[in-house]
């Protein structure tokens, strides 16, 4: 624990520091021990019961086979990462303005909302091949699929956040004769920050799912592609390796969003949004 960085408030210092220490224990050390334990159990079970590698490869086998084609796997990881990030960024660029428009005008909300729900009711796996036909075999359909999977919860949570402002503050803003724009920028958007981050946490996890779905249908690179091709050739350990990389990618990206909220909006995370 860092010793300095103690703001002047002396009497309030002690409890938070103790909490920080136990938080580090609970948030980092315990999950790591639990994960390590799980892998050990897995390894032991594979060896004890002689489970064949094409059914359930042992962690050591996964590691060995994946590392054997290390550079290829790294290339696939980068391809997926690119799709995830592009899809995530585009989702944000679409969701924020869309949520603002939806909350600003009941008429637009009534007109657009059914379309939003409609995009969600279409199974993305079914849509993917059609999009490939429409958009060609390139990065574009993959990003579109990723966005379609990821953006909806983001729109909903941002819109909820924009509407969560106490009515008194809106009255205060009107009493100050403030414009709708400064009401949005100075009151509604900051109020929505905890909700925006709740949405971002869901969106980043879904972006990973969306990217893999897209890669199953149309790709010559990416971890989804790797899983498909390696299972086709019964290289199950490599498929497991890709799966583990995907899950790690999901967890790391999620934690980056959590950290960004804590660093840039420290007042927000304590507003207790689910997750984190």
């Amino acid at each position: 624990m860092s010793v300095q960085a103690a703001p002047p408030l002396d009497e309030r210092q002690k409890p938070p520091r103790r909490r920080k220490k136990s938080a580090a224990l609970y948030e980092v050390v315990l999950p790591l021990i639990a994960t390590a334990g799980l892998f050990l159990l897995w390894e032991a079970a594979c060896r004890a019961f002689n489970i064949p590698g094409y059914l359930l490869p042992a962690p050591t086998e996964i590691w060995k086979d994946t590392m054997a084609i290390g550079p290829t796997v790294a290339g696939h990881t980068m391809a997926t990462f690119k799709t995830v990030m592009l899809g995530f960024v585009v989702s944000i660029l679409i969701s924020l303005p869309l949520a603002v428009v939806l909350t600003a005008s009941p008429a637009i909300a009534a007109a657009v909302y059914p379309f939003l729900v409609w995009t969600q009711s279409i199974p993305k796996v079914a849509l993917a091949p059609i999009l490939v036909v429409l958009l060609g075999t390139n990065e574009l359909p993959r990003i579109v699929i990723t966005v379609l999977v990821a953006f909806f919860p983001l729109v909903i949570s941002v819109a909820t956040g924009l509407l969560s402002v106490p009515p008194e503050l809106i009255e205060l803003s009107r009493a100050c004769r403030a414009s709708k724009l400064s009401e949005l920028l100075r009151i509604r958007l900051p109020y929505a920050v905890p909700f925006i981050f709740a949405g971002l946490k869901v969106a980043i996890s879904l972006a990973v799912v969306g990217a893999v779905v897209a890669e199953f249908v149309n790709a010559d690179a990416g971890l989804g592609f790797l899983i498909q091709t390696s299972t086709a050739f019964f290289k199950v350990p490599v498929a497991f390796g890709a799966l583990i990389i995907l899950s790690v990618m999901g967890v790391v990206l999620f934690q980056i969003v959590v950290a960004a909220e804590r660093i840039f909006f420290p007042w927000s995370s304590s507003n207790a949004t689910p997750g984190a």
């Binding site: 008194e168 004769r177 403030a178 009151i187 927000s268």
Partner: peptide, 29 residues
């Protein structure tokens, strides 16, 4: 603009300091 309002709930801005909360109407105006 020459009217001040106090509501039942303080409804302060959670992200702003006490000083910035007091200055808020001036900023909006």
């Amino acid at each position: 603009s020459e009217t001040g309002i106090v509501f039942q709930a303080p409804t302060l801005l959670p992200w702003a300091s006490v000083l910035d909360n007091v200055l808020f109407p001036l900023r909006m105006m």
